[in-house]
């Protein structure tokens, strides 16, 4: 006698429920537990929520909850092959890109890499102090023999952040131009941003083989692309209405308006988005070492697996240093843009 028998009796569904009673579904965990203390009189406090499992007890025709998780899994496995057939060739360039960039960052000797990075930092920030700061940080990382791991991490972030900007800015622009597009995209962005990063990895592991770089590439891009999309959309929507009206009154085409007015005026916001995107790539690249992403994350992982406290802490420090470098450099570049167009 189960709690919710009365519902099915009352609705006259008893015979429908018992039609295939012989073939009872597999025992659920609750059944097993209930077996132990059967016969006990149930009190009002013990009334279970009318969940699938509770209803199943009263009527064998109602499915159990685990059928749902199973259904999701089976559904995914069913479309997996088709999905892979489509996605595999499309995403293959990502694998190549990551492999080659990693190769380049690893093979270029440090005494060439350092000057290149210094020039890049100078072009972005126009500040000698910034160049000095970055050089000292990198030199420290190299000094404690974390140079190659740092370069691997940097290479992955470089590729993923570039791709995020490449795809994110146009998506943000499209969103800013159509309210419908915005309404459709925002829930997806919300989902991407709130899903725990580990959850991305699960379906990706089923789709691609773990040894392929694109596996972590996709995970990082999905996770990190959100801010640049959001802030591009926001930035363009926030552009002064009067200036847009002026642009229209001079007979600008949509293209001239976008390139000459909207993007430049939204640039501070877009840059802030890029800054966040880079920081999020860095966070994800550590988690991605679970699926064979090289870099400092591997050392962190080793620290956790083998309980090597020192290795874990020092590589953690390396990640912090990289984070500071990336953050300061992009912020300095952002400030430069802001200063140029303060009103």
């Amino acid at each position: 006698m189960a709690t919710y028998d009365f519902i099915f009796d009352g609705l006259g569904l008893r015979s429908w429920c018992d039609a295939d009673k012989t073939e009872k579904g597999p025992l659920s965990m609750a059944d097993l537990l209930a077996k132990g203390d059967s016969g006990k009189e149930s009190s009002l406090l013990d009334i279970p929520f009318p969940s699938l499992d509770a209803l199943n007890e009263s009527c064998g025709r109602v499915v159990q909850s685990r059928a749902m998780t199973k259904g999701v899994e089976e559904g995914f496995l069913a479309i997996k092959d088709v999905l892979r057939f489509v996605l595999d060739p499309i995403t293959q360039p990502l694998s190549w890109l990551l492999e080659y960039t990693l190769l380049i960052f690893e093979t270029v000797p440090w005494w060439i890499m350092f000057p290149i990075l210094m020039i890049v930092v100078y072009l972005a920030t126009k500040s000698i102090r910034m160049v000095g700061f970055v050089t000292i940080c990198l030199a420290f990382l190299a000094f404690i023999d974390h140079y190659s791991h740092s370069m691997q991490t940097l290479a992955i972030i470089f590729v993923c952040a570039c791709l995020c900007v490449l795809f994110g800015v146009p998506i943000g622009i499209a969103m800013s131009r159509s309210d419908r597009m915005q309404r459709m995209t925002i829930p997806i962005l919300d989902m991407l941003q709130t899903l725990p990063p580990f959850v991305y990895l699960i379906p990706l592991i089923f789709l691609f083989s773990v040894t392929e770089p694109k596996l972590y590439g996709i995970a990082i891009i999905l996770y990190a692309i959100v801010p640049v999309i959001r802030l591009t959309d926001l930035g363009i929507r926030l552009v002064d209405k009067d200036v847009i009206e002026a642009a229209d009154s001079f007979g600008m085409t949509e293209r001239q308006k976008l390139i000459g007015v909207q993007i430049p005026l939204a640039l501070p916001n877009i840059m802030a988005g890029i800054n966040q995107t880079i920081m999020m790539s860095l966070a994800m690249v550590v988690i991605a070492s679970l699926v064979s992403a090289p870099g400092l994350g591997v050392l962190v992982l080793r620290g956790i697996r083998n309980l090597e406290l020192g290795v874990g802490l020092i590589s953690g420090l390396g990640i912090v240093l990289l984070a500071i470098i990336l953050d300061r450099v992009t912020k300095a570049a952002l400030d430069r843009v802001n200063a140029a167009q303060k009103r």
Partner: peptide, 22 residues
């Protein structure tokens, strides 16, 4: 035609100037 009108026949001056800051 409208774009041609706005470009060649009319020009506008705005209360809040509406200059491009960059």
């Amino acid at each position: 035609q409208l774009r041609k009108l706005r470009r060649e026949s009319m020009s506008m001056v705005f209360q809040k100037f509406a200059l491009l800051p960059h």
